[in-house]
């Protein structure tokens, strides 16, 4: 038989448990990406070139190399320098760093769209750079870029199967193990695909809600 319902139902709870790891990696990775991306974007705007240039170089470097290599680097190479991290943590760090560079470009576009008059009014009121960013610039820069950030959340989520390469027991790795044990790959892999579909749709719905909320509060 092509599709075994009994087997599918049997492995469903195992996959559901693994999906928690996937979601964990996604959310933590994205929080890291969102925060670090903002830091990169702000540092890259710095007028001090010894700040902006190295950050720009780092962003370009990370963006232009494959995520899989970065995952391997953090998990297998860093221990050579005495930094040993668990597989899941390494995966979250790699995902976060990689997507931080994409997010930083989105933030940069958002920040550059703030009219010069907002900066000038902040300066004229003697606000410090910190308060200018925190209270004036960032609250105006974020709402328009929520859709773009949301796209990266979904993209990051769909790249979590790469973590199976360093044996993180997320959905994909679990499905592979199930398959190799039972020699049935159809059910586990299909179910994993369905999990991703459902979560992606849910995330897209959530992002639309956040967008609507933001455009409402802006009046």
């Amino acid at each position: 038989m092509f599709w075994d319902w009994n087997y599918a139902i049997e492995i469903l709870p195992i996959l559901a448990r693994a999906s928690i790891v996937t979601i964990q990696a996604t959310l933590l990775g994205f929080v890291l990406a969102a925060v670090l991306g903002l830091v990169f974007a702000v540092l890259r705007m710095s007028r001090a070139r010894w700040v902006s240039l190295p950050v720009a170089a780092l962003v370009e470097f990370v963006r232009s190399t494959p995520l899989l290599i970065q995952i391997f680097f953090i998990f297998f190479v860093l221990p050579e320098f005495g930094i040993t991290i668990g597989a899941l943590t390494a995966g979250i760090l790699a995902l976060g760093l990689h997507y931080a560079t994409y997010c930083s470009e989105v933030y940069r576009a958002g920040l550059e769209n703030i009219p010069r008059g907002q900066w000038e009014a902040s300066l004229a009121l003697n606000l410090s750079p910190y308060h200018t960013f925190r209270d004036i610039i960032i609250p105006q820069a974020i709402p328009p870029i929520v859709p773009a950030l949301g796209n990266y959340l979904v993209a990051l989520f769909k790249e979590t199967p790469l973590l199976s390469a360093i044996a993180v027991l997320e959905l994909m790795q679990t499905a592979k193990i199930l398959g190799s044990e039972s020699f049935r790959y159809t059910e586990p892999i299909t179910l994993v695909g369905l999990f991703f579909l459902v979560f992606s749709l849910a995330a897209a719905w959530l992002i639309r809600r956040v967008e609507a909320r933001l455009s409402l509060s802006k009046v």
């Binding site: 907002q118 004036i136 105006q140 802006k218």
Partner: peptide
């Protein structure tokens, strides 16, 4: 020193 601008530059949020 305080300044008022041609285009107001109020904080819209």
């Amino acid at each position: 020193i305080g300044m008022v601008f041609q285009h107001f530059n109020l904080f819209p949020h």
